[in-house]
Structure formats: C-alpha cells, structure tokens
C-alpha cells in the first residue's frame, strides 16, 4: 500500500474520531447524565444481539445508497437523486409485492427487478440532460426528488392505500414477496446478502471491466478521457443507469425486507447519507460496506441515547457534516501528510 493511501486512511480515521468527540461535546452540553449517555452511545450498540441486529439492518439501505453515490462520485458527478429513487422504486415495487402471484423465490426477485428498473429509468432524466446538454445534474436531480415524492404519494393515496387502515399505508405485501429473515432473533433479512453481493459486483464493474475503467478515467479528467477516445456522454449515461438501478433496488429491498406494507410518507433521507458513506469509503465499493456499518453504529448509538436521555437522534446530522467537511478538506492535516510520505521514501 502506498504511503499516500495509508495517509488518507489515517485522515479518515481522524475525521471519524473528531465526529465522535463532537458527539461527546454535544452530549456533555445537553444531557443531564453525560457520562452515562456517552457510555450508552459508545458501548450499548454492542451489548446485545438485538442491537447488533439493528446495526446490520440499518446498514443495508446505507450500503445501497453509498454504492450509488460512490459510482457517481467516481465519475465526478454530483447527483443527489438517490433519495427520490429510493422512494419511487419502493412505491412502484410495492405494486409487484402486493398483487401478482409469483411463486416463492420469484416474488421478491420480481419486486427488486422492477424497483431497479424504475430507478434506472428515472435516473435517465437527469443523466440524459447532463450527458446530452450539460444540464447541472445536482439541481435537476434535486428537483426530481421533490417530483418523485409527489408522484409516489399520489400512487400511495390513490392506488396503494389500504382503506382499512387509519394511517396512510399500502395494502399488505404478500407473504411470499417478503425477503426471508436470515438470523433468527433479529430482523436481519436476505437484503443484507444482496447488498454485500451488490458491493462486490460494483467493485468488479468499476475495477475489472472496460466500462468501469472508462468511468474512472472520465472522473479523473473528462477532457483527457474525451481526447483519448472515450465517449464521455455514454459514460455519464451508464453511470446514471447503474446508480439508479442500485438505489432503486435498495429502495424496494428496504420495503420488502423490513416492512409489511409501503409506509413511507416522506423522503427516507438516504440520499445525503449515501454521499457521506461514499466519501468515508473513498468511493471504494467494498469500503462502502464498512462505512455503512460505521454510520449505522452511530445511528443506533444515537437512537439509544435518545431513548434514555432526550437527545434527538438528529445529532447524527451534525456529526455527518463534520465528517464530510473534514474528509474532503485537502489541507486538513496536510502538514503531517508531507512528513508521513517523506518518511516512507527514506525506508
């Protein structure tokens, strides 16, 4: 491993540490019983099988959104549409999970395929506008998020809604369409295996395939890539389709893995999480798994603190922004970087 790469890992670790320290400070200021709360935040998520299970199940959608963002970032594209894709793929996929009578294994598979296709098609809108006309993908994808929320809610209100329920939820999914539980005593479902598989596939795609190479070249320097014969517009489209499919699959897997009905009434918020996870992972698909677990651990910790001492879980958002700012800050710790790399040369 090069000295530079290991330095980046150290910097990531320092950023994570700073974020946890900030969490301490927040807890110290807000909590009535700070020492107890900090202990809960750090240790309690590991204290029982059911909490460990919570970490794993929370990590699943984070892996998907992190992967989608990692692919985007790798191509130097800043599309934040994962959020809306999660929502609309969940809504449309729910149709498949509720009505058609597919045999056992095919049922969840059909829903996932539909979710992924929906994500792919929807992502083509900002993707196509960017590839062909250079429209700013960040603004278009954020507009899409709001539009998709409206369309998804319309579907839920008018077609999916179970009139027998007081709250706004869909009809029950068919039993066969649900993803199987894989660890008894927890809610960990087969979606976790799919997420890991997906990470491996994205890794192979990005680092072992021709398209992946073209994507990385375009991300490094789009002009240079274009001069060396890479069709940049095509690359942009492919990246959007891949990211859309991943986010779409993630959306419906979250629905049929954890819930019995479609019950989102607002955007689930995975889009921005994905951005941070991708950065923590240095845009490496396999690293995304670890990063998702770290964020999930913070989440569960914050959730447990919230239960015992009234500190809102949104504390996490503050930590997340600190992590993003520090990891992407080129000059953060840069004094040490030079020394570190030089020391490596001398050996």
């Amino acid at each position: 491993m090069s000295r530079e790469r290991s330095f980046n890992m150290i910097r990531t670790a320092v950023s994570m540490l700073v974020a946890i320290l900030v969490a301490f400070v927040i807890i110290l200021i807000v909590s009535d019983q700070p020492v107890e709360s900090i202990k809960i935040f750090l240790v309690m998520p590991f204290s029982s099988g059911s909490y460990l299970g919570n970490i794993v199940e929370t990590a699943v959608p984070l892996i998907f959104s992190g992967l989608a963002m990692a692919v985007m970032f790798k191509a130097n594209l800043f599309n934040l549409g994962g959020e809306g894709i999660f929502f609309i793929a969940g809504a449309v996929g729910s149709f498949v999970a509720i009505w058609p009578k597919f045999p056992s294994v095919l049922a969840p598979l059909a829903a996932i395929v539909v979710g992924a296709l929906v994500g792919m098609v929807v992502m083509m809108v900002p993707g196509g506008l960017k590839a062909k006309y250079g429209a700013n993908e960040m603004v278009t994808s954020l507009m899409m998020n709001n539009i998709l929320l409206g369309v998804g809610l319309y579907l839920l209100n008018n077609l999916l809604r179970d009139p027998g329920m007081a709250s706004l939820v869909s009809y029950k999914y068919r039993k066969k369409a649900l993803l199987a539980n894989i660890v008894p005593g927890t809610r960990i479902h087969a979606g976790f295996l799919i997420a890991v598989l997906c990470a491996v596939l994205v890794y192979l795609f990005m680092y072992k395939s021709k398209w992946g190479y073209e994507i990385r070249m375009t991300g490094n320097n789009a002009k240079f890539a274009s001069y060396s014969g890479i069709n940049v517009a095509k690359v942009i489209l492919i990246v959007h389709m891949v990211a859309g499919a991943i986010a779409g699959a993630g959306g419906i897997i979250e629905c049929i893995g954890l819930h019995k009905r479609f019950e989102w009434t607002a955007l689930p918020g995975y889009g921005f999480d994905g951005a941070m996870i991708a950065m923590l992972a240095g845009n490496n698909p396999l690293g995304v798994i670890g990063a998702a677990f770290f964020v999930s651990y913070l989440r569960i910790g914050a959730d447990l603190v919230n239960r015992s001492s009234d500190i809102p879980t949104e504390m996490i958002a503050i930590l997340q922004s600190i992590i993003i700012l520090l990891i992407s800050a080129e000059r953060f710790l840069h004094k040490y970087r030079q020394r570190w790399i030089e020391k490596g040369e001398k050996k």
Binding site: F78, L80, F272, M315, I318, Q320, S321, I324, A329, R331
Partner: peptide, 23 residues
C-alpha cells in the same frame, strides 16, 4: 482555507442545516 471541494462543502452545510435545525 482547508480546500474542501466547494460542492461537498455545500452538501455538508445543507445536511447540517436539515438535521441541526430539527435537533
């Protein structure tokens, strides 16, 4: 000063605002 990518810096501030105000 710290040379954070301005787009990522913007994403961070937005996320801070969204969660921080609820907090």
């Amino acid at each position: 000063y710290y040379k954070t990518n301005i787009i990522l810096g913007g994403i961070a501030i937005n996320s801070l605002a969204s969660g921080g105000t609820i907090f």
